[in-house]
């Protein structure tokens, strides 16, 4: 449950360098420790083993880097979010930098449901860029892209072609070409690795560059998607911050 007692904030962070080899779960644990080191006033779940109220966005594969990862966190008091980015960055492993913090509205839709598009830039290892270009054209021209993957131990066959919005070369590296792609996360996602397999070319470094929340025809950066303001606070003092509290008391 979110938004019942606390003050939700959204955190954007990047993941670069050696730390790209740690898992989504390791990132979660690193943040939990960082919250305590930075002495953020966390709101906890009730019950037998209280946990901080944190919810992470879409998982990033081990080995990928990112400019745009997100998590939502609930605080027990309303703090000035300005210094939070720096204090969290100092408490996090090298390569994980908090690049933005925003207060968000109560009951803002969870990141995992809200984010509907992601963009990547990734390297394809290939001698001849023309080979990559022609295979991309063929892939995009095909009516479907059926891949088999294991999900919870079962082999699942899916057509992921609808999830590929764009895919085009955007530069070269010393061992191949850089591709830029925008992918839908629903109803079924597709990963850069799947694209490499479909192209028949090995994938090198992968960078997630953006995540988007699409709502009513608008495309929103998650930090800006659900801002908190007194006007949008649904019901009264408990969720609207100290100013509202004072206002009611007076």
């Amino acid at each position: 449950m979110r938004g019942d007692t606390g003050f939700p904030i959204r955190v954007r962070f990047s993941k670069h360098g050696k730390v790209r080899f740690i898992s989504h779960r390791d990132i979660a644990r690193a943040f939990e420790r960082a919250f305590r080191i930075a002495e953020l006033p966390l709101a906890f779940t009730l019950g037998f083993s209280p946990r901080p109220k944190v919810s992470f966005g879409l998982a990033l594969s081990v080995g990928f880097e990112s400019d745009a990862e997100y998590l939502d966190l609930e605080l027990s008091t309303d703090v000035d979010v300005e210094p939070v980015a720096a204090s969290l960055t100092a408490a996090l492993p090298e390569g994980i930098d908090v690049t933005g913090v925003a207060r968000i509205a109560d009951r803002a839709p969870a990141l995992q449901e809200a984010v509907s598009a992601v963009q990547y830039r990734f390297e394809i290892v290939v001698d001849d860029p023309e080979v990559a270009a022609s295979r991309i054209d063929a892939l995009l021209a095909a009516p479907d892209l059926v891949i088999t993957r294991s999900r919870k131990g079962k082999q699942v066959v899916e057509d992921v072609r609808p999830a590929i919005r764009t895919l085009q070369p955007c530069g070269t590296t010393d061992r191949g070409v850089l591709l830029a792609t925008e992918l839908s996360t629903r109803p079924t996602g597709v990963r850069p690795g799947d694209l490499g397999t479909a192209l028949g070319l090995p994938v090198g470094r992968v960078l997630r560059t953006h995540q988007w929340i699409e709502r009513d025809g608008a495309r929103l950066e998650p930090l800006e998607a659900d801002p908190r303001s007194p006007a949008t606070a649904p019901d009264g003092a408990e969720t609207a911050g100290p100013h509202a509290l004072q206002a009611r008391a007076s």
């Binding site: 050696k18 730390v19 080899f21 740690i22 420790r33 081990v62 080995g63 492993p93 090298e94 390569g95």
Partner: peptide, 23 residues
């Protein structure tokens, strides 16, 4: 040796065993 180690880590399980970087 990091430049030589890094490419190996895409192919092994639990690659974070080899990166150090602990607080």
């Amino acid at each position: 040796l990091w430049p030589a180690i890094e490419p190996l880590l895409d192919r092994v399980e639990k690659p974070a065993r080899y990166i150090g970087m602990e607080r």
